[in-house]
Every structure is written in structure tokens, then in C-alpha cells.
Design a protein around this nucleic acid. Sequence first.
DNA 1: GGTATTTTAGGATAAATATTCATGATTTTC
DNA 2: GAAAATCATGAATATTTATCCTAAAATACC
Lengths: 161, 161
Amino acid sequence: MANKRTRLDVLRRLFENNSYDNQVDILNDLKNEGFMVAQPTLSRDMRQLKVSRIYNKDGKTVYVLPNEKKFNHVSHEKRRKEKVTQSFGFLSLSFSGNIAVVKTLHGYANSLAAEIDEFEVPEVLGSLAGDDTILLVLKEGASREAVRSLIRNIVPGYDEE
Amino acid sequence: MANKRTRLDVLRRLFENNSYDNQVDILNDLKNEGFMVAQPTLSRDMRQLKVSRIYNKDGKTVYVLPNEKKFNHVSHEKRRKEKVTQSFGFLSLSFSGNIAVVKTLHGYANSLAAEIDEFEVPEVLGSLAGDDTILLVLKEGASREAVRSLIRNIVPGYDEE
DNA sequence: GGTATTTTAGGATAAATATTCATGATTTTC
DNA sequence: GAAAATCATGAATATTTATCCTAAAATACC
């Protein structure tokens, strides 16, 4: 099966470019994109993507993606911001390929990067810090969990959802 | 039967003060308010009130009234458009793997990067700016078109043959 | 390596919601 | 004031969506 990650990305694109009013239509378009999944899977995907169902001015049902900026993203980072004030300004950790991206409060990236470097974990080949962002280049094959664990060691409470 | 107008008003109040995840619960509360209606009526009322069904951060279903400044992203976009009149020294955009490289005029990288960050598009995990270069780490599976589109929003005329 | 745990997924089905159809109420228009 | 048009509604039902249960695949863990 083509993986779930890309399926969610395709779904996002579909929602951005189309107005659906039921899941079956979405399933068909998914199929055209090469994803043959059953309705329960789509239902779960939509919950995960937090697709909301609204009525437009004509009273027609429409599925729409949440506005990331207003919903989860911001509020999530805000929540963390309140919670973690003394922890080097850490905001979030994410991955792409062999790069880890750490977001921090404005101005905190360098000090947190220094902190990270001090651990000298073998999984992290090197780091590069800007103002509110740190890039960590990971060793090939390094587990992401190792990086999460590293952050956990530095940022109390990280990952304790 | 107490009339429909007041029932809709009561419904509005109920939605403002409670988190429902199905219509039957709402029907019960309506009954407590003195409105004995059947489910089809409620379904129609909700369409008329344009109650939308969203998933909150925990993935729970919630019905919410529109108009609670959650969906008016239009004005926000407008504000942005007005603000962005110059081109932030943008020169070029290219890609390598999951990294996008933006070249700018000397000294412009940071301000353009800040502008990019403000959009908080989910496809861009983070950015790192030097003097005339910005690295964008893209989410795995993110489409390059999404990044081009982002740049298009910031740099007037970019990519418009 | 091998084993445990977690994640992903579909079929069957349950649950939730929307619509159809018929009927009575309300308003409009003459 | 009566006929006509519109609106409001519920019972039955159709449609749509979510969940339960199971299994396979992926991943983490020794």
C-alpha cells in the first residue's frame, strides 16, 4: 500500500481544490490518485486531518480543512509556550528525512542548539541555528526516537502529552 | 408548539454553552427547554443555523456555530495582501530533496524568511536564513508546488510567466 | 536475528444524520 | 373569508459516517 503520509497529503490537496459533500466522492477521487482505501479508512483520515463539515451560504454540505493558522498549529504552540517557559524556549520538534527541525521562541535557537550539541549524541551529526529555528542533521539511519529522547532530556515535560 | 424562531434561539444558546457531538443529546436538552421535536426537525434546524461539525484537538466531534472568528480567514488574507507590496529582495527558488533554497538580494534573507514563517504553512517544517539564502525544510511528502504557491503569495509576480 | 508493540486497514455493522412523503398549520392573495 | 401557496413537522426510510473486531504490516525492542 502506498503509505498513509502521502495519502493524507493527497487528501489535503483534494480538499483544497474541491468541494465534497460526502465521503464516497472523495473515495473515488482518491482512487483516481492511486489510493484504493475503504470508507472507514477515509473516515479516520478525515478525523486525523480535522476536516470539518460546514454548510455554505446555499445550505450545501461542504468538507473543509481547518485553517491551520487559526486552529491547531498556533494554539498548540501557544499552549506549549505557556507551559515551557524556562526550558530554553523550546516550542516543537519535527522531522523530514534526515533533518530534524526544532522551533524555539524568538532568539532562543542558539542557546538551545548549544545545549543540544553538548550532549554529543552520535545520532546528530551537526546543528545549525538561526533565530528561532534549529536544524539538526541526523546520521543516516538514526532513529528519530533518539532525537526525541535527547530533547526530552533537555526540555522537561516534552512529549508528555 | 412553541414557534420555530424561539427554538432556533434556544438552540443557538445551547451551542454556545455546550459541546455536543451528536444530535440526540441536543434533542434531550431541547426537550428540557420545552421543545419536543423529532430528529429530522433538529437536522433541518442545524442546517439552517449552519452549525458545523469540527474535530477538536483531541479528535472529538463537536458542533459549533459559525461566526466565532474561527472561519473568517478571508479578512486575514486581505490584510496580508495589503502589507506585502514589495518583493522582499526575492531572487529565486529551487529544490533539492526535501530542502528548498531561496536566494535573495544581499541582506534580505532574514526578512523574507520571517515573512515565510508567518504563513505557517504545514508543508514547511522550518526555515533558516543567512545573508542572501534561506533554507526551508519541507515536510516529507510535501509538494513543491505548495512552496511555489507560498512564494507566489509573498512575491507578487513570481512564477507568472 | 527474533519477539513485542504499535500502527494501519478492511469487512461487517452500528450509529448518526438526511431525505422523502404525507399532513396539518400558517401566511398570502384576491 | 376562502383558495392557493408556503412552511413546519414527524414517521419511516435512505443515506452517510463511525466503530467494532480482526488481521496484517510496520516499527520498536532486545
